[in-house]
């Protein structure tokens, strides 16, 4: 299965949440790969803590592969190459987790012809190898988005299930921008239809992920004044209504990731050690990520919204 992680704006936690989802699925026994299609600013190597391995693969990243400059894109075995101490100590039954890094440099290129062929070849090949392929796309309606829309519209890709996650923060601007990215006139669905996708099928495969959402019931906010509390609740409700009007309401939401400083500032994988031993991360975050990871393949969550 292919999971495309998209967002309209930066700072939505798309890469770090996506990486955490890949990590959690691998822990659960799936063979997972993470493709860094964020060509302008590849971040995945930092999230997985494999910077040295990343540097070794300097000119053989996904960009070089798609442009026809490398025969085989570099892949990094995260478990073997990570500097993160916890990630090197794995429970039995853990699946493979591999990173296909982006290139540090690399301009735009056309999502047509040979480049598109290579993209299709790669996705097909990886689908035969991995249970889950998570593709991190650069923010906005980028050429990476165009390329995977064109690739998944190809007839040889019809047996491969693909799903879209649109990440956004819980603010008016972010909600509006995310809904536009998904369903707007220049959005993912419209762009897909223009490339031969069936509108209903594509639309049914799009879900939103709200990140950095304050949980108003959490003890974190229990000390605020009654006025502040009332205001927060009203704003939260307003945002829900806005999302619903724009087509990003709760039935199209796959999950919510709470506001957690560890996720925001460290921008790395949250391990059970962070929750249980050092206790710097919130259990709610750990659980939310686990639930979201589970829902990626839970068909009940992907029935017609």
């Amino acid at each position: 299965m292919l999971i495309f992680a998209a967002s309209d704006k930066g700072g939505t936690g798309r890469s770090v949440t996506g990486a955490n989802l890949a990590y959690r699925r691998a822990l659960a026994g799936d063979h997972v790969c993470y493709l860094d299609f964020d060509f302008g600013s590849p971040t995945a190597a930092a999230v997985f803590d494999v910077l040295d391995a990343r540097a070794a693969a300097e000119d053989r990243g996904l960009h070089a592969y798609l442009a026809g400059e490398a025969g085989e894109p570099a892949r990094i075995d995260v478990w073997a190459r990570t500097e993160h101490p916890v990630l090197r100590d794995l429970p039995p039954g853990t699946g493979r987790l591999e990173l296909f890094p982006g290139d540090l440099s690399g301009g735009e290129f056309a999502a047509t012809g040979e480049n598109l062929h290579r993209c299709v070849d790669l996705l097909l090949r990886l689908d035969g190898e991995y249970d889950l392929i998570l593709v991190d796309l650069s923010a906005g309606r980028s050429y990476a988005v165009d390329m995977v829309l064109a690739a998944t519209a190809r007839p040889e890709m019809r047996a491969v299930v693909s799903r879209w996650l649109v990440f956004h923060r819980w603010t008016r601007q972010h909600v509006t921008a995310a809904a536009h990215l998904a369903f707007g006139p220049r959005g993912i669905v419209a762009g897909g239809v223009a490339r031969g996708h069936d509108e209903d099928a594509l639309r049914a495969g799009v879900r939103f992920v709200r990140s950095g959402v304050p949980d108003l019931e959490s003890p974190l906010w229990s000390q605020v004044t009654p006025t502040q509390s009332a205001w927060m609740r009203r704003t939260d409700e307003d945002l829900r209504q806005l999302a619903s009007v724009l087509g990003a309401g709760h039935r199209t939401v796959l999950g919510t990731v709470p506001l957690d400083p560890v996720l925001q500032w460290r921008e790395q994988l949250i391990t059970d050690e962070d929750v249980v031993v050092s206790q710097i991360a919130n259990r709610e975050t750990w659980e939310a990520l686990g639930e979201l990871a589970h829902r990626l393949t839970d068909d009940k969550c992907w029935e017609q919204a």
Binding site: H117, V120, L124, D127, P155, E156, M157, R158, A159, V160
Partner: peptide
């Protein structure tokens, strides 16, 4: 692998 005979 792109051949239409294959269903992937």
């Amino acid at each position: 692998v792109r051949h239409p005979l294959l269903d992937h």
